[in-house]
Design a binder for these strands. Structure first.
Length: 457
DNA sequence: TCTGGGGTCCTAGGACCC
DNA sequence: TCTGGGGTCCTAGGACCC
């Protein structure tokens, strides 16, 4: 049965009735997106990587998470496990990097600063993307603005970006997708309006529309909707019946009805999570505890930085989902008697949970801690019975924080926190922290005939 | 041997209340 | 066959994002 067989031929009433002229000058969203961001970061400090296939791997050197154009063209797909492609790497001399978040985070920060100096109405959407609001420009001016963004960021940081522009975030996303696939050398596309926009949307497969994942794509295809244009013309209310408001919003946004305004003042986080796969499977309880306790300690630090306390702690453990042998996945939620953000308490409850979760005879591959029920540290409710212990833990923590601030990171830590060697990640091809660590700074050698940059670490 | 990690939002259904 | 009805709050799980 095709639930979407009623396709609305006319614009549903109640939608925007602006003239084309008014529309063209309306507010626009621009999505600025760094091209192959992690690879571009690696190339910044290693020019010999230009023109070569380069990839960056996820934690534990697991999957491919960033690819240069050359790597894409030889068939390396996003998310491929690295161990399945040694022959391609060998044959094409692919340069492989472990992920270096310290470096990428720092470059990202610089780019976002530049962008927000150009356009103060900005929403940082991910490490390599931001939405900005551009007001009162016509198409011609929008193209110019996009080109200027690209030129400025390239000149000031060396990172190439592309910009997609449209009257909603979904249209801006679609435009950005178009830039990357059409190899537009200007690095800009404006979704435009009328016939031109229809053609552009017809060329966008429905599964590439922002908000359409595997399940939604399947549903649309079953209903003969294969591209963004067909989805735009689908009846928003039929879609809502089957997919809920999320589906409806996608259709509305494609029609230029804004459902997702710019969020330039993101509220505080709702949860903080830290989890890792282990380099080697863990069998003993002590090792599992040693690895997991550090996550709790790190989360406590993040919470203090955000001036938040956690009301609940979720601790989980799991065996490798691809491993042979018995499988085990379990979690435990602990409601803290008093919201906390000091390491001693979070670690205390993490251990209580872990002891209940641990079963002998399994090869653990991953564990994690999620803090939720976050409340502002200043306004938290104290519980009279626990106040004494609580204040003691807070005091210990603040003394440690003070010492660490003066003497450097983690020079004082709890005895139970360890050096992180248990369950350590595999990172065999890590580049230096070029921009955030003295040891990582690039050294330049000059002689009479040539100049070359190399890093001696 | 080797397959990432950190998020958000929505919804259905259960518990509970009057 | 029929067993009250309506409301709120919470939570687990699903779907999606980068």
């Amino acid at each position: 049965m095709h639930f979407l067989s009623i396709i609305s031929e006319n614009y549903p009433s109640g939608y925007s009735t602006m003239s084309d002229r008014e529309k063209s000058k309306a507010d626009h969203f621009a999505l600025v997106d760094c091209n192959n961001f992690y690879v571009s970061c690696e190339r910044l400090f290693n020019p010999s990587l230009e023109g070569r296939p380069v990839i960056v791997l996820s934690n534990n050197d697991g999957c491919v998470i960033s690819r240069s154009e050359e790597a894409k063209s030889i068939g390396i797909k996003m998310g491929m496990p690295a161990f399945t492609i040694p022959d391609i790497i060998e044959k094409h001399k692919v340069k492989v990097f472990s992920t270096n978040y310290t470096l990428y985070g720092d470059i990202s920060h610089r780019i976002m600063n530049i962008l927000s100096s150009l356009y103060p109405e900005i929403e940082i959407y991910s490490i390599d993307e931001a939405f900005i609001l551009i007001r009162g420009m016509d198409d011609k001016a929008l193209w110019k603005a996009g080109e200027n963004i690209r030129k400025t960021i390239l000149q000031w940081t060396g990172i190439p970006v592309s910009t997609g522009i449209g009257t909603t975030k979904t249209l801006a996303k679609a435009a950005s997708h178009h830039v990357k696939n059409s190899g537009g050398e200007k690095g800009v596309y404006v979704a435009g309006s009328g016939k031109e926009q229809d053609v552009f949307l017809q060329n966008l497969p429905v599964q590439k529309v922002w908000g359409v994942g595997e399940k939604y794509a399947l549903f649309f295809q079953k209903n003969n909707i294969y591209n963004a244009y067909a989805l735009k013309r689908a009846d928003a209310f039929s879609v809502k019946n089957r997919l809920g408001v999320m589906g409806q919003r996608i259709v509305l946004e494609l029609n230029g009805v804004c459902c997702y305004p710019l969020n330039n003042n993101p509220e505080e986080k709702k949860e903080v999570c830290l989890s890792r796969s282990f380099g080697k499977p863990i069998i003993r309880y002590d090792d599992l505890e040693a690895a997991t306790v550090n996550y709790a300690g790190t989360i406590a630090g993040k919470l203090r930085k955000m001036e938040l306390c956690a009301g609940d702690l979720l601790v989980f453990v799991m065996t490798g989902k691809y491993a042979r042998g018995p499988q085990y996945v379990n979690y435990k939620i602990i409601h803290l008697p008093v919201p906390a953000n000091n390491a001693p308490e979070l670690i205390h409850y993490t251990i209580i949970a872990l002891k209940q979760l641990f079963r002998d005879g399994y090869q653990y591959k991953k564990s994690g801690v999620i803090a939720s029920g976050l409340v502002p540290a200043a306004g938290r409710q104290l519980e009279i019975w626990n106040e004494k212990d609580h204040q003691r833990s807070d005091l210990i923590q603040s003394v440690m924080d003070n010492v660490n601030r003066k003497t450097g990171n983690k020079s004082v830590k709890l005895a139970i926190e360890n050096d992180g060697s248990t369950g350590k990640m595999k990172q065999e091809m890590l580049s230096p922290k070029y921009t955030t660590s003295w040891e990582g700074i690039l050294q330049v050698k000059m002689d009479d005939t040539e100049s070359k940059a190399e890093n001696i670490v």
